[in-house]
Write a protein that binds this DNA or RNA. Structure first.
Lengths: 341, 341
DNA sequence: ATGAAAGCGCTAACAC
DNA sequence: GTGTTAGCGCTTTCAT
């Protein structure tokens, strides 16, 4: 079928071993011989088979990446980061999109194992309690380095890159406080998720440090969807002791807020201040200058890949875990201001 | 290292061939023996090596997917579609993100070839004139099925899935005309790209059929960026004989329009009607009900994968090309209306 | 500096 | 039904 190392050897009048040597720049080979081989390679348009090489070396130079929804730009950016670093190291990426489906995830794992990938990067979305044992032990049984991105699993030994959600929320709330706000509502995400819990902690901390009482009535429990955020925002706008600012925990949810504002003719920040979490380019492009806490997604992908590569180089023996906490950055656009009337 | 078919054979007290048979459900094997083998597989936690199998069968069950920017949801959705179908057929996807970089693309091709992938799906973004010969012939030299998504290359023999841009634009313009508009501006994309050219044709056709003269002054040449669309929109708003509607050719550009509207306090559709191309969820979520022509992205990915699978099954001999044209769908949200004053 | 040959883990004739 | 054996395309000692 395809042209093999044997054909090159014959064409160049050398042995397969010699061809292999020039292919890998290994061992000694006379310049003259090398040229002969290279010529043959070019003439026969030969590309070595990574498959055969893998079998022989038991190195596949391939890693697996598992994401829950590839069509969400958040994951797109993560993959972009991963892919950049992978590229520099000539690693292949086998992508598995699970649509948040457990079975698919298990199946993906099996496929990846068959492919003898050398490591895995996963971006889990499940609330921890659903992160079931079967799945986790499948992972551990793989016996290869695993890196978690932005999703922490307690009591399990995985490396990972995480975001300091407490810090992010703390900064956001502090910015609102410094702008002069005292009555600050918060719309949380699904409280089963660690990020949501941590962001709430950050919010409370900021209030406490500034001697502002944390009032339950200003804490609204959402679920990351824009529909819920929309309803909550409507509710907030109708409160008797209406807050002057809202801190909302995700980019999807802020869209729900904006919709409610739009309908109720609420201007930002004149009538209500707001800060979101995670970048949402669109709002800023269309000129609504919304402040937000920016989780460094591309960076997270890059770091994750770097950690993975380190683990690969360390070899089987060294099983040292590495956890990196990335700081989110507060980007102020003006929507946090307090406008006195 | 890992446990191999040999270990299973020994553990089960059979030959490797028998193990292989139960692994692949091929040939005859007594139920009793099969159970012994399955037991050994389970006990030793054995997963067959796809690598070795590939080498032996010269089938990798792997395809390559090349996209220019993975973080753009447009491509994310395409991949989602691809991945769904690939999943059903137990195919692996090696993903290459090129950041619109020619060298990366060439490099990706080389890597993929080494991996002996069985087919490729590509979403080209280059204007055709830049789609250089070297790249194209690299592709053809691969000697494997290639499927193009939403990017057509003339004079080359690739299968593909395309969108009927003429129809999409025609429908959009017709909707505006039917709403009562006569002065309809259009903001085009980069005219080197086929979609932009075709969409312009569709626009003109709709006007002609309705006996509305095509006026050059209403045709604005953009480049798919929101910045340019913003400037053009400003210009449009200041025209003496100002149009009552704008048809804008991409989702990024409509953001530029909206920004200009926002700044100039233009309401949609009261002060200006607008229709875009390609879905932009966000605007509708926040309650700006923008009509748009929806290119079926997930569907495109699915169809592309299906075509590829067919080609794979047809085998080397049959080299029949398949081109599918998908119809975009006009989604009306009200922004196309003509409001009499 | 180069070649011979064994082996990576699996499949597929072929033989029994 | 099951085992033997020869590859698949490459790397890697070990000789020379």
């Amino acid at each position: 079928m395809a042209v093999t190392i044997k054909d090159i050897a014959k064409a160049a009048g050398v042995s397969r071993a010699t061809v292999s040597r020039v292919l890998n720049d290994s061992g000694y080979v006379r310049e003259e011989t090398r040229q002969k081989v290279l010529k043959a390679i070019k003439e026969l348009n030969y590309t070595p088979s990574a498959i055969a090489r893998s079998l022989s070396t038991s190195r596949t130079n391939t890693i697996g990446v598992i994401v829950p929804e590839i069509n969400n730009p958040f994951f797109g950016e993560i993959i972009k980061g991963i892919s950049q670093v992978a590229d520099e190291h000539n690693l292949n990426i086998i992508l598995c999109n699970t649509d948040d489906n457990k079975e698919k995830e298990l199946k993906a794992l099996k496929l990846l194992k068959q492919q003898r990938i050398e490591g895995i990067i996963i971006t889990p979305t499940y609330p921890e309690d659903e992160f079931n044992r079967e799945y986790l032990s499948s992972l551990e049984n793989l016996g290869i380095p695993i890196v978690l991105l932005d999703g922490h699993v307690e009591y399990f030994n995985f490396s990972g890159v995480f975001i300091d959600h407490i810090k992010g929320a703390y900064d956001a709330a502090t910015a609102l406080i410094e702008a002069g706000h005292r009555k600050i509502a918060i719309i949380t995400g699904y409280m089963n998720s660690r990020p949501a819990r941590e962001r709430l902690i950050g919010y409370k901390k900021a209030l406490e440090i500034n001697n502002i009482p944390v009032e339950e009535k200003y804490i609204f429990y959402g679920d990351y969807t824009h529909e819920t955020a929309y309803n909550i925002t409507k509710e907030i706008l109708n409160m008797k002791d209406r807050p002057t600012a809202i801190f909302v925990m995700s980019n999807m949810m802020i869209l729900g807020c904006m919709k409610a504002f739009y309908e109720e003719n609420i201007r930002v920040p004149e009538d209500m201040a707001i800060i979101g979490f995670d970048k949402i380019d669109v709002l800023n492009i269309i000129g609504m200058n919304i402040s937000f806490v920016n989780g460094p997604t591309i960076e997270m992908g890059k770091m994750g890949m770097k950690i993975l590569i380190e683990s690969l180089n360390n070899g089987k023996d060294v099983k040292e875990l590495k956890r990196i906490i990335l700081m989110p950055k507060l980007v102020l656009k003006g929507s946090e201001k307090l406008v006195k009337k």
